[in-house]
Write a protein that binds this DNA or RNA. Structure first.
Length: 524
RNA sequence: GCCCCCGUAGUUCAACGGAUAGAACGAGGGACUUCUAAUCCCUAAAUCGAGGUUCGAUUCCUCGCGGGGGCACCA
């Protein structure tokens, strides 16, 4: 019985004890040191509602579980204040293992049939990506990979703020025409040097230069970061040219949601839960960023996704409330989530400071990847929850890159590969996987492998992608311990059951790494 | 002033309201005649403070302290 099946059983049983269990319980791994595969605190949570002490309810639930045929191969015990612990016996584990092994890398069905849209990175086309962009880039990419593994159909999109109307494109245009120096770097100067901007307006020159920068960024993201983007959504081509903003403004006017004041047009987002009204058309007649983004989101929601996800940088947090307000006001259908990645600051000599182009304290993502390698960089970003504030110490990152846990996980994979290769053409001894499960290290490895599906399910529900690094490390560790304790080549023959276990372990490590976009080398 | 995020071993990070707060790096000690020692085993080491809710709080609430970010007719 998998954890999901166990959850269903507990829910059903609870309903027999209490008519409608009010509240959520969990089934999970017990803390280290407790001998059990799963535990639930359901009895503690529902004791009051059932009118019993937790311990009594736990005993009664445990007795009910034991009576079901599904629990025939599971030892059920009540511990402490009322935890119910489940220990799967070898037969049960073998059955689950075989079912898991048959799956062989196929997607799960936790979010089967769902259409999910995820917008991430969306860096301005005014320069290179720096390490601050790395958070959103890898978080979005890994989340998309996990959602796909959970069975969803995911569209990955990158919004390019390249509207000829925008202030930044006009500023970029001034720089291109030699009339300003915003965004200027040696790299940008070289780019300007190879283009003829003569006769162009500031807006057109800015747009032309932005295209060049953008093409370089797209190449970098796809080729060097290994991030697939399904659609590069140009604001200029899709919003400005199509007049999407104007259409939305028309709708908003009809619905009486706008206010004209001080020569500008405002949207009264306070009706949807925001604090105050926001400018959508400036007094000079140009559209604000906000109305473009509203138009963009209206477009997204019109495409019929079950779920729309935005991954934004910390500097956009003030924008969350107003966009949610717009969703409420316009009645967009679908689940909408906005994730904010916290800032990356630099740490030197023990003190942290903000990255600044002017002060030259900016680290480009490309330089980091060139220096440390993409696998190390991916793991580095993947292991931190996006809500943590990263203090990035380049010296420390360099020093520790050789000791990055990513190598540990990759090493386990390479070792498994090597073992499997060595068994080609050798005599199998016919032992079954069950023999390996009888070894503590084998049992632990099987249990860890089976958790893979739970990790995918959990992340597809709570979006906490950093769980993948923890899991991958634990899986590699379980494998290393199995390698220590159980010989695959045993006295001239191959322990066929152990070999099968190694094969599935290798496959699972490789899948877990793939969800993070990390390679699984055959040798190291 | 208002809003958001954070505060856990020396360091970088975990911990869905649950059992003895887990890892890694660093520190100290041990294991190579190997199916890959980039490994394995052992030791020391932590919840910012004060209240509250709860059978139970690192987790939720209030206040305080400390740090980061945002409060534009920039994006």
């Amino acid at each position: 019985m998998t954890r999901n099946e166990l959850e269903d059983l507990i829910r059903k049983t609870l309903e027999e004890f209490i008519l409608t269990p009010n509240g959520s319980f969990r089934v999970g791994a017990p803390p280290a040191g407790v001998r059990a595969d799963y535990m639930t605190s359901a009895a503690l949570i529902f004791a009051k509602q059932a009118g019993k002490t937790p311990r009594v309810l736990a005993e009664e639930l445990a007795a009910a579980f034991r009576r079901t045929s599904a629990c025939a191969d599971i030892e059920i015990g009540v511990e402490g204040p009322g935890y119910i612990n489940f220990i799967l016996n070898e037969t049960a584990l073998l059955r689950l293992f075989e079912r898991f092994a048959r799956r062989r890398g196929k997607n799960f069905d936790f979010r089967l049939g769902q259409k999910i849209h995820i917008e991430f990175i969306s860096a301005n086309p005014t320069g290179d990506l720096h390490i601050g962009h790395g958070r959103g880039a890898f978080y979005g990419d890994i989340l998309a990979r996990v959602l796909e593994a959970a069975g969803a159909s995911v569209t990955r999109e990158y919004y390019i703020n390249d509207s000829r109307e925008s202030v930044q494109i006009r500023e970029l245009g001034k720089t291109a025409l030699g009339k300003g120096k915003q965004y200027k770097t040696t790299k940008l100067e070289a780019l300007i040097g190879e283009t003829d901007f003569s006769g162009m307006s500031e807006a057109d020159a800015g747009f032309a230069l932005a295209r060049k920068i953008e093409k370089a960024n797209e190449y970098f993201i796809e080729k060097k970061l290994g991030i697939r983007i399904d659609r590069w959504y140009s604001e200029d081509g899709n919003i400005r040219v199509q007049q999407l903003a104007e259409k939305i403004i028309g709708e908003l006017r009809v619905q009486g949601m706008v206010i004209e004041e001080e020569g500008a047009l405002w949207l009264d987002t306070s009706r949807g839960g925001d604090d105050e009204k926001r400018v959508i058309v400036r007094s000079d007649g140009s559209n604000s960023y906000f109305i473009s983004d509203i138009a963009y989101h209206a477009d997204k929601f019109s495409r019929g996704f079950d779920s729309v996800i935005d991954v934004w940088g910390a500097d956009h947090h003030g924008h969350v409330k107003r966009m949610m307000a717009v969703k409420n006001m316009l009645g967009w259908e679908g689940d909408f989530r906005i994730f904010i990645t916290q800032l990356v600051s630099l740490k030197e000599n023990g003190t942290s400071k903000k990255m600044s182009k002017r002060a030259g304290t900016i680290i480009l993502l490309e330089d980091l990847v060139d220096e440390l390698g993409i696998d190390v960089v991916r793991w580095f970003f993947a292991e931190k929850a996006i809500s943590t504030h990263m203090d990035f110490d380049l010296a420390l990152a360099r020093e520790q890159s050789a000791k990055n846990p990513v190598y540990y996980a990759q090493y386990a994979h390479a070792r498994a590969h090597s073992i499997i290769k060595k068994t080609e053409g050798e005599n199998m001894d016919g032992r079954g996987v069950i023999e390996s499960i009888k070894e503590p290290a084998g049992r632990a490895l099987v249990v860890k492998i089976l958790r893979f599906s739970e990790v995918v399910k959990d992340i597809s529900e709570d979006y906490q992608v950093h769980k993948l690094t923890t899991y991958s490390y634990e899986l590699a560790s379980a494998f290393s311990q199995f390698y220590r304790d159980v010989r695959i080549h045993d006295r001239g023959k191959v322990n066929s059951g152990a070999l099968e276990l190694v094969k599935v372990a290798k496959q699972t490590i490789s899948e877990a790494l793939a969800l993070m976009g990390v390679s699984a080398p055959a040798e190291m």
